[in-house]
């Protein structure tokens, strides 16, 4: 058993964990934050994406002991108050960016990281940045639109994402 202390969605958490416990299982099964989904445990689907110190990481590829001292945000911590939708979530809603919703927390977290780093991504930047997140339902176009709208809303609605032709 090892003791970890870290910040999860703004709250300090202290817990004993066994060394081999995956971070995804720790969040879901031990702490009850089941919004982070596990789709492969192979690091390949992106459903388990969370923010670790602001960076998108796959929680199925990390051990719980590695989060000691870190700041973590999961899908449950995206909404400003736990009940209203953050502009990224709102954009997914308005653009039909989800169907079954299983991949969605991963896409939302990856979008958080993308827009923090690049507030005005082009369509091809969105597509390449999110190509590590798999969705079997939606065919992706509505997700791309969701991300574009989120970028636009977060920029205050006036500093828009670059247009298609600006890619190169």
């Amino acid at each position: 058993m090892r003791r970890v202390r870290f910040e999860l969605n703004g709250q300090t958490v202290e817990h004993e964990v066994v060394p081999r416990l995956l971070l995804s299982d720790f969040l879901r099964d031990v702490l009850g934050f089941t919004g982070t989904h596990v789709g492969c445990e192979q690091g390949a689907c992106g459903a388990c994406t969370i923010l670790l110190n602001g960076e998108a990481v796959r929680s199925c590829l990390m051990f719980a002991v590695q989060v000691d001292g870190a700041t973590i945000r999961t899908i449950e911590g995206v909404s400003p108050d736990g009940t209203s939708l953050h502009p990224i979530q709102q954009a997914f809603h308005e653009n039909y960016g989800l169907q079954c919703g299983f991949c969605t927390p991963g896409f939302v977290m990856s979008t958080c990281a993308l827009l923090a780093e690049n507030p005005a991504p082009t369509e091809s930047e969105i597509r390449s940045h999110l190509s590590g997140n798999l969705c079997r339902c939606a065919g992706y176009e509505s997700i791309v639109q969701s991300v574009r709208q989120a970028a636009w809303e977060l920029a205050g609605g006036n500093c828009a994402g670059k247009a298609d032709g600006d890619d190169e």
Binding site: T34, G35, V78, T83, F92, H93, G101
Partner: peptide, 21 residues
């Protein structure tokens, strides 16, 4: 009409089989 399912799924409060404990 926008989907009524979205709210719980976007907040991470949906309930999938493995979420049940």
């Amino acid at each position: 009409v926008r989907r009524t399912e979205d709210y719980r799924l976007l907040l991470g409060t949906g309930t999938f089989t493995d979420d049940l404990q």
